[in-house]
């Protein structure tokens, strides 16, 4: 691990912070807000800046986005900031999926760049001015739980080529972020777009219903290959790489309208409508239990799954 020399460019760079280091720091006292988080300087010394995995990736624009989010949604529930932040985070932090798969990056953002944002977004006010974060996974955890990583992946999986519109719709819905995001259905872009279409077009469709639909679709996908029914062309990897490489020249993410994502190919409209019809049919023919799944109003399953969970001893 390289040591950061103060005052150098490295101070402004995004690095990778090992999960073991993050978890060592994230004691229950720190999470509950009793104890301070060690300063970013200390953590930066444990971070890895080598390899140029995110060339030119600077921390400052991310920091500014977090500040703006906290300002904008000061008077609303922090949850509402997800739909605003997800596309802009994706736009600003230009990385490939392979780079995004490294949890060290997300640990770094949460611990070294914007720990206050994580605390704002996931904390609860408790007595004595403390803001307690229930789970360490919001700082360092699986991709679908970590504060920033879940937003980036939501944007990546729900964007329609350069169009972040569907991302906004999907991220307005915590059921989508908490549950549907993890379902393998959304790995097929036409399916992800079809779900967004349902969320948007049918007022009655709730996030839970979409959730249930994804479950039914998974059961049906054992015999029905929706990838063949509704095909998707591979994305244009060169376009994506050009977009990533253009980060230095790119304008900052606009705050009041959506930025443009990489123009690596839109999803075929025909494929989307095929799957919209398919979902509608699934909902229509669902037997009693299927209907129950669609209507189930039980609370989203507890976010208790993580490597970091410090449960009672086994």
């Amino acid at each position: 691990m390289s040591t950061a020399e103060p005052g150098t460019a490295q101070e402004r760079m995004i690095g990778r912070l090992p999960t073991s280091v993050a978890l060592k720091v994230l004691t229950s006292g720190v999470l509950a807000g009793y104890e301070p988080m060690p300063g970013p300087e200390r953590l930066r010394r444990s971070a890895d800046f080598s390899g140029g995995a995110i060339p030119g990736g600077e921390a400052e624009p991310i920091r500014l986005l977090c500040d703006e989010a906290m300002r904008r949604f000061r008077d609303e529930s922090p949850t509402a900031s997800d739909a605003w932040l997800a596309p802009r985070l994706h736009y600003t932090l230009r990385i490939t999926r392979a780079e995004a798969a490294d949890s060290g990056l997300w640990n770094f953002l949460a611990m070294c760049v914007a720990p206050d944002f994580v605390r704002w977004r996931w904390g609860k006010d408790t007595e004595g001015d403390r803001r307690a974060v229930g789970q360490a996974v919001r700082f360092a955890g699986p991709w679908h739980s970590q504060c920033f990583s879940r937003l980036w992946w939501a944007a990546e999986l729900f964007r329609d080529g350069p169009d972040y519109g569907p991302v906004e719709i999907a991220c307005r819905n915590q059921d989508v972020l908490n549950t549907v995001l993890r379902q393998e259905l959304v790995l097929h872009r036409p399916a992800a777009q079809a779900l967004v279409h349902l969320l948007q077009s049918r007022v009655t469709t709730t996030g839970r219903e979409v959730n249930g639909l994804a479950k039914l679709a998974y059961a049906a996908s054992a015999t029905m290959i929706y990838e063949v029914l509704a095909s998707d062309d591979p994305q244009d990897a060169d376009e994506l790489q050009d977009w990533i490489d253009a980060i230095g020249d790119a304008v900052e993410a606009p705050y009041d309208r959506l930025p443009d994502g990489p123009d690596d190919g839109r999803v075929d409209k025909g494929s989307i409508s095929t799957l919209v019809e398919w979902f509608e049919r699934l909902a229509a023919v669902a037997p009693v239990r299927g209907k129950e799944i669609l209507a189930e109003s039980e609370a989203p399953r507890p976010e208790g799954v993580s490597l970091a969970k410090t449960g009672p001893g086994l």
Partner: peptide, 14 residues
């Protein structure tokens, strides 16, 4: 169809 999947990058291409 041939299916390529990589759980870490959440790729599932056919």
């Amino acid at each position: 169809v041939a299916v390529v999947r990589n759980p870490r990058t959440r790729i599932r291409h056919t």
